[in-house]
Each structure stands twice: as structure tokens, then as C-alpha cells.
Design a protein around this nucleic acid. Structure first.
Lengths: 223, 223
DNA sequence: GTCTATAGGTGGATAGAC
DNA sequence: GTCTATCCACCTATAGAC
């Protein structure tokens, strides 16, 4: 095949199904799935290549190393999560609504990207490098930090009911309550068979989390 | 060295420091540490052997495979945790006190065994096999299951304030709130520098978790 | 029981033709 | 850009002397 004929084929292939988009993208998608399943070390570059319908040499043509591939998978996901959280936490609504929005972002985002919870957990268990990196970038380019915004929701919502120090702890509790069901799903399926209807369970869970957190809000801050 | 002389040495060595207890024990301790740090796949048998002050062949003399070693590290820890939880949850005290006791077991146990949180997470991320196995053993040998006991704390404590279905969700929230800070410690150190004084932070955290959960209890159930 | 040496296999990465 | 074939490091597990 000449170089010119190949170019023509590549242009046409932009419009085909997922298995035929450009190799770089296919590799990223396969890697996301397999890194989520098996972690950075457990994932095999050969398996990723096969799932992406390229050979091992092609994978290394697009990504110099397994490590680079891993970073290119993780960082954009975290960046999008952080950016959505910031939008939800930074609105001008009352604290109750802002908390609803933030909890909603967590649940929707984790629901919509089935690989993300496991990617988060793998990153956590191997030192949280991707999170740290993304967070530092977000912080340095942005003085009105995400953390301050979320913190502010609780400080304002709990004013008069709980001392300001409790806002720190509440932020952690919120993250714990939102993220835990996703990362601990196998454990939940052991201790609670009802979890089997997953989306159903998540809807009830989201309500429960919100109720639990709003319990700590002062009555004045409630609509 | 004759067989008899060696026996004498071994008996004496029972009273020496950790580096000189019997090799089997040394291997288990080193494996616990290294499995916690690097996971089942990331851990290297050579490194475990070296940390236990034995060579690779000795490790395989005592444990037929890396997999067996992993199971022998994990299951006793989970069994002890479950047994302590059962003691705390199965007392005849009022629900508030039982909840205090259960939360206390989680925090004390996770504090006292620094490797446990990471072992839990590694087990979770690789399918929760050790948890599943231990849980099934606990359940089959024991009709008054641990889960029913913990569930009962919330059902009884929240009676008249929340519908019984909420007890399911509350159990999950409790586990999330207790376990999350330990497994997400690297993340917490990113978003909250105050976590650096770890034990200090945990004490405040334990109070906060208890307060948050007791918020859902009916007034009648409080002392 | 304890050691050295090595088998046997698989991993990430690359060379080099096309 | 894409492929096949291969390098070489390193892993678990074992053979076999002592």
C-alpha cells in the first residue's frame, strides 16, 4: 500500500465504529478498562494492545512506556472530576443546594464512568500520585481552590450549630460517604445482597448520604 | 550441627528478639508488611524472604506458594476483626453504647495494626476474596451473624425517627466513615495538611463519626 | 532445615523489515 | 505507521547438596 492510499483509508476510518477510531484512542480506552481492572502493575501491555486491536510495538509507538500510558489515562479523568466539583461547589446557591450539587457530581460522575472508582482506588493504594499531581496543578492555576469552596459549604451551612473546626471533618465524611460505596462494591455485595440492583441502590444511597450530611446543618440554612 | 544441638538452639531462640523467633513467624511478619505496602502482585518473594532473614528456598519450604502465604497473612487478621466486632455489637448495652463500642473497635483495630488498612484495600481492589472467605466462615459457624447484630444497633436506635430500611444504609455509612480515613490517608494528606498529626486527627475523627451517626438516633434511645 | 544454583516462564521494551 | 521476532531483566518455584 502506498503512503497516499493509506492516508485516504485513514481519513475514511474516522467515521467508523469504536474499533476503528484512531489507534491512539483505542489504546487509551483499552488501557482505561484494563488499568481499572488490574492496576498499574497487574495490567499487561500485551493485553492492552490486544484489546485495542494493535500489536505491542504499536502501543510503544504511541506511548513511550507503560508508565506514560498510565498517566495519560488517569490525569484527564481527575481533571474533569475536579472541574465539575468546582462548578457545583462554586455556585451562588444556598449551602444546602450546593451540597446537593456536589454530592450529585460525585454520584453521577462515578456512575457514568464505571472504571473510575477502581482507578481511584488503584491510585490511592499505590500512593495517590495521579491525584496529587492533578491537585497540585489545579491549585497552582487557581487561587479560589476547590477545597476552600467545599469547605465553605459546611462552614456556612453549619454556622451556629457546629463549631467551624467541624467543617474539616465534614468534608472528609462527605467524600467518604460518596466514594466508599463505589470502591467497596465487592464488600457491599458480601454484606448486603440488596446491592445487586446497583443503580437502584445508588439512588437510595445518594438520598441517604445527603440526609445524613444535612443533619449537621443549622435550621436557618435550610430552605 | 547435629539435629539435637539444633533443637536446643531453637528452644532457646524463642526468648530472643523479633529477628530471631522461628522463621515461619518472621516470614509471616515480613509478608504482612510487604503485602500491605505493595499488594499481592507487587510484593516480591525475594524481598519478603530477605526482610524475614531467610532465603527464597526457605520461604517455599514453609509456604508452598506466594498465594498461600498471602492467604495465611490475611485471613487471621480479618477473623480477629470480625470476632472483636461481634463482641462489641452483641453486648446487652443500649444502642448508643453499642455503636460507640463498634466504632471504637474499628478505630482501635485499624490504629493498632498499621498494615491492616492497606491489606483491606488490596483485598478489596483485587476482588475481596479474603473478606468473602472469612465472612462465609463466620456466617456458617454462627447463626446470630455479625451483620444482624450491627444492623440491630441502628434499627433499634433509630426506631421512631427513621424507617427500618435506613438501617441498611446506616451500616454502610458507618463502615465508610470508619474505614475511609485509613484507606484514603494519602488523599487526606493532600487535601488536608492537618492530617499530619495522625493520632491526633484520628481521635477527633472518631468523635465526629460517632456524632454524625448518633444524629440519626431517636431521642428516646439516648441516655 | 538450610543453603546455592538454576530452571522455566513472562514481563516491558526494541530492532529492523516493510 | 505497522508489523514480526527477539532481547534481556526479573519473577516464582524447585532441584539437589549439605
Amino acid at each position: 500500500m502506498t503512503s497516499e492510499r493509506r492516508k485516504a483509508v485513514n481519513v475514511k476510518s474516522q467515521n467508523l465504529e469504536a474499533a476503528e477510531v484512531d489507534p491512539r484512542q483505542r489504546i487509551l480506552e483499552a488501557a482505561t478498562r484494563i488499568f481499572a481492572e488490574k492496576g498499574r502493575e497487574g495490567a499487561r501491555t500485551r493485553e492492552i494492545a490486544q484489546a485495542a486491536n494493535v500489536n505491542l510495538a504499536m502501543l510503544h509507538y504511541y506511548f513511550s512506556s507503560k508508565e506514560e500510558l498510565y498517566v495519560r489515562v488517569l490525569t484527564p479523568i481527575f481533571e474533569e472530576l475536579f472541574s465539575r466539583l468546582k462548578l457545583a461547589a462554586g455556585s451562588s446557591a444556598i449551602p444546602t443546594r450546593r451540597l446537593e450539587a456536589v454530592v450529585g457530581v460525585y454520584f453521577d460522575f462515578l456512575k457514568g464512568k464505571p472504571d473510575l472508582p477502581r482507578l481511584i482506588m488503584w491510585d490511592l493504594v499505590t500512593g495517590a500520585h495521579a491525584m496529587r499531581q492533578t491537585f497540585q496543578r489545579v491549585f497552582s492555576s487557581d487561587k479560589e481552590g476547590l477545597m476552600q469552596l467545599i469547605h465553605g459549604i459546611f462552614k456556612e451551612g453549619q454556622k451556629g450549630k457546629l463549631p467551624p473546626e467541624d467543617a474539616d471533618q465534614s468534608v472528609i465524611s462527605m467524600v467518604a460517604l460518596c466514594v466508599f460505596p463505589f470502591i467497596a462494591r465487592p464488600m457491599l455485595e458480601i454484606i448486603n445482597p440488596g446491592v445487586i440492583q446497583w443503580l437502584n441502590f445508588l439512588a437510595r444511597r445518594q438520598d441517604h448520604v445527603l440526609d445524613l450530611l444535612l443533619n449537621t446543618f443549622a435550621d436557618e440554612s435550610k430552605p
